[in-house]
């Protein structure tokens, strides 16, 4: 590493510490449990306010995102959007509460306006299983509430081990009976692929986050257009979805006032990446997802929970640069 001080804005998302995630989660849980939502909201506002003031990189990223969203909404004749970077921060903090409420069962199926509920129900009950691509827009965990309405739904969320341990610990605490399975992936090869295939064969779903480039393999990213600027998505989720030879769906869930709005969009069954033209095929799939995500994000720009420069090209860090 050279002695040049690395500018915070140059960092890959994985190097930007998510200050809100690990901070006193227990403290927040207890606040909610014993003092209720209004007090919780107040406490979160203070904490988030603190970060908003001091997390310069994240604040800049949120401002940039808000301005681009406002610009595009104007251009596309949507209702005027006033850039709200602070609101984007605050919503991130409040989404932690919604997560807890969803785990503990305080948010019910009736609180969600589900656009394609019947479509999802059919997909689940078909027994074909599938891959569901999600993002850091909105709060997917709310969809746990629909689990009771679709008893056959079995979800395997693909996660990195490091975070899984933390999450499992928390889940044990707040919702010991939750049926959610965390699928830990540290390396990816034939063994992991087959483990996933087994799940799908049993009609289960593999949920993969598709909007952040890989930590270890930054070169495995594909350029697409997002909100009329070039951005990069990881190749992995699309390659994986294709190897599993199963139905592929996009899904999201956002808060709308006091209620939630979920969407489930079937994409391909299966996703085939033509091997003669593979790179282009991956790009096409990634672009399709990016366009879908863009529509979602433009409707609710203040629930964009990527607090880094989303349009920055992922570069290899020093360590991996030579190993490609």
């Amino acid at each position: 590493m050279s002695d040049r001080k690395i500018n915070e804005t140059d960092k890959h998302w994985s190097e930007v510490h998510e200050k809100g995630t690990s901070l006193g989660l227990n403290f927040l849980l207890y606040t909610y449990k014993y003092l209720g939502r209004p007090v919780f909201t107040l406490v979160v506002s203070f904490i988030i306010g603190y970060f908003y003031l001091f997390a310069r990189t994240q604040r800049q990223a949120a401002k940039d995102f808000q301005q681009q969203a406002a610009h595009l909404r104007r251009k596309r004749g949507m209702a005027e959007w006033k850039p709200r970077p602070f609101r984007q921060f605050l919503n991130f903090g409040l989404s932690a509460l919604d997560k807890v409420s969803a785990w503990t069962g305080d948010i019910r199926e009736k609180d969600i306006d589900f656009a394609n509920f019947e479509v999802m129900k059919r997909a689940v009950n078909s027994g074909k299983g599938g891959v569901i691509l999600i993002s850091h827009h909105g709060n997917m965990e709310i969809c746990r509430a629909i689990g009771k309405e679709i008893p056959n739904l079995r979800i395997n969320a693909v996660v990195h081990t490091r975070n899984a341990a933390k999450f499992n610990h928390l889940m044990q605490k707040v919702a010991p009976d939750s049926g959610l399975n965390l699928f830990e992936v540290t390396s990816f090869g034939p063994d992991t692929a087959i483990r996933m295939m087994d799940k799908i064969q049993q009609g289960e779903f593999i949920v993969i986050v598709a909007d952040r480039t890989s930590v270890q393999h930054r070169e495995r990213s594909v350029d697409i257009e997002f909100m009329e600027r070039v951005a990069w998505l990881p190749e992995g989720p699309f390659v994986l979805a294709s190897i599993l030879r199963c139905p592929v769906h996009f899904m999201s869930c956002v808060r709308r006032g006091k209620r939630f709005a979920a969407d489930f969009t079937p994409y391909r069954e299966p996703l085939i990446l033509d091997r003669k033209n593979r790179q282009q095929a991956i790009r096409t799939a990634a672009q399709d997802y990016a366009s879908w995500l863009e529509t979602q994000a433009l409707h609710q720009p203040d629930q964009w929970f990527n607090f880094f420069d989303f349009w920055k090209k992922p570069e290899h860090d020093q360590e991996n640069a030579g190993k490609k």
Binding site: F188, P190, A193, I243, R278
Partner: peptide
Amino acid sequence: DSIDALELGV
């Protein structure tokens, strides 16, 4: 390529 390797491995 590496994706072929994965498919073949499976």
